[in-house]
Design a binder for these strands. Structure first.
Length: 147
DNA sequence: ATTCTGACA
DNA sequence: TGTCAGCA
């Protein structure tokens, strides 16, 4: 993934236009904890190309597959963060996030005992959110498998 | 002109 | 989801 993909450059108006989605809808997706666009110093939202991909995936899951927000949060919480972030087995055993999460880490606040980057935009787990509807995300990382 | 939050048909 | 108010 290129650095520019996570570069926050689109205002909510531009993002809505490019996606063919209403501005209010984009705000709802955020309030429901599905996306985390960057905020400027004046509290304006800025979306990256990757944010747009995630939103497109979310829209498909809602309109095509009929999922609701609860189902989407659950699905997003299933992203294999321990694989994406290459967590060592020891820390993974002690980490409770992957087992009890009912919402993606980027909407769980910073309370969870876990090393996080400064912002979710630069987080590799968030970057993979656009692939939640692609089962290959679950076994492509370093040949590790669930067995 | 554009976006923000909160409230509501 | 959409829209309107009152701001920044």
């Amino acid at each position: 993934m290129k650095v520019s993909d996570s570069e926050p450059i689109y205002t909510i108006g531009i993002a809505a236009k490019k996606l063919g989605i209403s501005v209010p809808a984009l705000r709802v997706y955020e309030k429901e904890g599905l996306i985390v666009p960057l905020r400027t110093s004046t509290n304006r939202r800025l979306y990256s190309l990757n944010d747009l991909r995630i939103i497109e995936t979310i829209r498909n899951l809602i309109q095509r597959d009929g999922l609701n927000f609860v189902g989407l949060r659950r699905m997003l919480s299933f992203l294999p963060c321990w694989k994406i972030k290459r967590c060592n087995p020891a820390s993974f055993d002690k980490c409770e996030v992957p087992r009890i999460a009912d919402r993606p880490c980027w909407s769980s606040g910073k309370s969870a005992s876990r090393q996080c980057e400064d912002d979710c935009q630069s987080c590799p787990v968030y970057a993979h959110a656009c692939h939640v509807d692609d089962l290959s995300v679950y076994d492509l990382i370093e040949g590790q498998n669930f067995t």
